[in-house]
Amino acid sequence: MSRAGWIRVSVVVAAVAAVELLCQGGIITRFTMIPPSEMVVALAGILTSGRLTPAIVRTLRIVGIALAASILVGFVLGALLHALPRVRRTVDPLFATYYAIPIYAFYPLFIVLFGLGDVPIIIIGFLLAVVAMIVSTLNGFDRIPRALLKTARIYRMGRVRTALQVMMPCAAPYIFTGVKLAIAYSFIGVIGAEFIMSGSGMGYEIAFAYNNFDNKVMYPLIMLVLVLVTIINMFLHFWEMILFERRRRG
């Protein structure tokens, strides 16, 4: 690992240790926060007891559905819009300002429309993720150098071959970025929606524990979500490095 990497690990460890000390020393009371060491122990207990496994599975399932839908729909829409520049010009302003819209504000609307089940949560996760995927797909196709498309024509490749053998590999890094963003956004959307109002899932369990002053459940769960998402992001980051390493200059 690099020097910066070691320092980073030390910084994180020191921060956690500081919190531990503040909690143990009573400067942060138990009503506010339990020590990180206790969080880990409690989390192990929760995970082995299986009490919250249904909630965890449910959240992951909903994220999975929202994610798959957003990647699929986002890619197809992105490719279509790329092929239809006129339509694209018209919807471009929407994309430019999309993430300024507080999507959560639509959640109550969806609850009234679809009830308190999975559907409104899936929609929130999907809506947050899909536009990142569309924009990344468009971006990827935009950045295909003209010389490469001309080369495909010199080889007299048909549309399908050009798409599969030139356009897709060329746009792949950008599409991967889209997938990464979609994963982050669908987690943010789903857990956020569960947290605001729902009857199950990890977000709900956190809110429930908070309302019952049950820090021994709440903190481990928060930790679980943060660690889980961070691990997924790190994994994707390394995978990306390996996939596209040979294509980077330097």
């Binding site: 956020g192 605001i196 977000g203 820090n215 928060i222 979500v225 998402v229």
Partner: peptide, 18 residues
């Protein structure tokens, strides 16, 4: 970057407690 892509909503109870 990690902070940017976590669901920050989970931190809200912590903020509320503090």
């Amino acid at each position: 970057v990690a902070l940017y892509s976590i669901p920050k909503v989970t931190l809200y109870p912590v903020v509320l407690l503090f």
